[in-house]
Each structure stands twice: as structure tokens, then as C-alpha cells.
Design a protein around this nucleic acid. Sequence first.
DNA 1: TTAAGTGCAAAATCTTTGCAAATGT
DNA 2: ACATTTGCAAAGATTTTGCACTTAA
Lengths: 146, 146
Amino acid sequence: MEDKRLIGDLLSAHGLKKTPIRMEMLGLFMDHDFALSASDIVAKMTSKRDRVTVYRALSSFEESGILHRASEDGQGVKYALCGKNCPGEAHTHQHAHFICEECNQTYCLDDVKIPEVKLSDEFLVNRVNYTLSGICKDCKSLDPVA
Amino acid sequence: MEDKRLIGDLLSAHGLKKTPIRMEMLGLFMDHDFALSASDIVAKMTSKRDRVTVYRALSSFEESGILHRASEDGQGVKYALCGKNCPGEAHTHQHAHFICEECNQTYCLDDVKIPEVKLSDEFLVNRVNYTLSGICKDCKSLDPVA
DNA sequence: TTAAGTGCAAAATCTTTGCAAATGT
DNA sequence: ACATTTGCAAAGATTTTGCACTTAA
């Protein structure tokens, strides 16, 4: 992974320490184009780590704006890297997500803008979440049946 | 609640038994215009009931198409009644949901159609979930600050 | 009668909190 | 040095499973 410097910079830029665990965690997010849950991460980490540490790192990353909650499918919240579109604090993550029903992976569709709707003034809208689900490219090719 | 017959019919129509618990559960869903989690239901049930029974009834209702998963905010999946728009098995719940960040209640915006987007053909879309969040009418009136 | 639903006990997850020790800057 | 991060232990919450008992149809 040549992104090591990038990851380090990302951490420092947010006032976080470059510890092995956090470096590895962010590496995982960079290596996957879909969202990861705490459990996903623990499972993928080479060096065995404590779940608690992962939870706290995720919270920390979310607070710092490095990650955002991409989806909460079935059990467990999933996180994804904030792209360039993420406007600092105001986390109106204006892109859609796709969850594969087969492999349960969550993809960030960074290029798909969330269409707007107008709501009755009974509601004050702060955030929008647009999540599609179905079959992803990988599972489609494996599955002869549609 | 005069909907008793309605609820009973709903259960029979799906080949389910009209037990007191299930009747009461569906009554709760009819009495609220927002989604309920298993915990919400247990808390609201007059007669004290087992969580397990509630979980199993919810699964049963979801399978039958009486309820659908409306949102999964933070912890716990929430369910809502399927409206007339719900096309039987193919649960493309084409209406938006609103989650209040203050009281955590989930509203089904049955009248808000989900806008379509086109995805690359890498993805086969089966379902769409469009969830807005912010402050609901009740919390807005209580909160002088916006 | 008999399949569906219930209740209790128990376990598997997921997540949070507190505190002492270790680590990065 | 000092605030951050970690690890362990422990607890709370959510959800699932197994089995015997009850109940609606």
C-alpha cells in the first residue's frame, strides 16, 4: 500500500495520531469501494485487535469527518470514506449508496447525486439518505440466474 | 379502536392467526404515523409481553408483507405498515421516510414519491430507500431554537 | 387435531463505558 | 510531559435459537 503517506496526512490533518491500528483501518477503507462495519473491519484486520478500539476509532473518524455513515443494513452501521464532495462539518452526504442483497456490501455511488424532493413545512430537513439495493456487479457475474 | 375487524382481516388475509398480541401490535402500527422498533412496541404494549414474541411477530409480518422495514437509524430496525402502494411481494416501497433527529421517530411520507436515478448497468436495482432526517413538526414546536 | 404462536432460558452479537497502561507528538 | 489511544473487563441492548406449552382455526 503506497497510500501510507496519504493516510498519515489524513490523520494528522484532523489532529489524530498515526497509530498502527488507525493506519490499518483507513487502509482498509481505501482498499474497498464499499462501506465497512465495525465487524467487517475486525475480521479483515491482520493483527488481532480489540473491537472496542475499532468502535472508538470509527467514532473518532466520524467526528473528524474522515468517515461517514453510509448505511445501516440489517445489523450494524457501516462507514465509508468521505469523498471530496463532503462539505466539512455539514455532512449532507449528497451521494447515493448501493447495498448488494447477495453479498451485503455497500457501495458509495459518489457520482450519483441525490435528487431533491420538497416536503411539507412540518418537517425541517437536515440530511438526506438515498440507498438503492439489488445485485452488484460481482454477484451478477457469479449468478447465472438473474 | 374500531379497526379491530380491519386488523383481524389483515391477519387472516395473510394466513396468520388473530392472537391478542398480534392484534395489539398491528393496532399500535395503525395508531402511529411513524415507524416502530421492537423495543418501541414492547414499551407500548399494555399487557407485558415477551420480546421474543414481538421479534417473531415482526418477522412474520414482514414476510407476509404486512410490514416493511422503514428505517434503521442508529440502533434497531423500525417497521411500518405497508400502504396500498406496496405491491405485494415486490416490496419496492416507493415512498420516502423521515426520521426526526430529536425524538427519533420515523414517519412514512406516503405521498412523497421517490425520485428515480439511473445507475450504471453494473448494478441491478431491486429496491430504493429514500430517507430524510431533521426535525419533525412536534419537536419544532417544542424547540424555540431552530 | 394440529400447525401456528407463545414464553422461558440461554446464547450470540453489537455497542458503550470506566479505568489503568501504553503510545504518539 | 501530555493528551490521545489502547486493552481489558464488564455491562447494556438487540436479536436469534431451542424446546415445551398453549391456542386459534
